[in-house]
Nucleic acid binder design. Structure first.
Length: 189
DNA sequence: AGCACGATGCTCT
DNA sequence: GAGCATCGTGCTT
């Protein structure tokens, strides 16, 4: 079952936690690729100085201000695409960054796309699944987009680790250290 | 196993 | 013009 807009409309921390164990699906050239989400991070509102929305709405971050259940895909470091899912209500900019997956469908295609390397990083994941700027703003609740999230493997609270978000070197406290990173402790099966 | 570094180009000031 | 929500390599312990 594809997660509906009501799932994404929940508080961002709830969505980030609930996405652990869920199945991220990408249909690429007619082939279904999928991975279990094992790491995600929350970015919540203009108050959050680690969030792209901190300085208000811009051309790049506009999708985050839109309705929940859409993909916010942006380009960084001159070569990497990042995939986020937009959360909360329209007008409130928030999203969850997809940071790592465990491949479960189309593993051969994924391995080829990654040249055999891992899928445990936000840019590794987008490369593995063929996610790029063409998907910025698409609905995650309409299979026609070729990108959505389904129920996967239940993850117990005891298997969840939280901690500071990664890569926010110049972000001031408390945002730099706030524990809005979620990941599963050990490999799922 | 860990750290330093260079690659590379778009966005916003 | 500065600063990136990173990755892979190569070198040091």
């Amino acid at each position: 079952m594809i997660f509906p807009p009501t799932f994404y409309a929940q508080p961002t921390l709830v969505v980030a936690r609930e996405l652990l164990g869920a199945r991220l699906v990408r249909v690429l050239d007619g082939v279904r690729l999928a991975g279990i989400i094992v790491e995600a991070e929350a970015y919540i509102g203009e108050e959050d100085l680690g969030c792209h929305a901190k300085a208000g709405k811009t051309k790049r971050n506009a999708v985050m201000f839109g309705p929940p259940g859409h993909a916010y895909v942006y380009f960084t470091y001159g070569m990497h695409w990042m995939l986020n899912v937009v959360t909360e209500r329209e007008g409130f900019p928030a999203a969850v960054l997809m940071r790592a997956i465990q491949p479960v469908e189309g593993a051969d295609v994924i391995a080829a796309r990654r040249q055999g390397r891992a899928t445990d990083g936000p840019a590794k994941l987008t490369q593995a699944l063929g996610v790029d700027g063409a998907l910025n703003g698409v609905s995650l609740c309409d299979p026609a987009s070729g990108l959505w999230i389904e129920a996967g493997i239940p993850v117990e609270d005891r298997d969840v680790l939280t901690g500071p978000r990664v890569g926010l070197y110049t972000v001031p406290e408390p945002w730099k250290s706030i524990p809005w990173r979620f990941r599963v402790k050990s490999p799922l099966h």
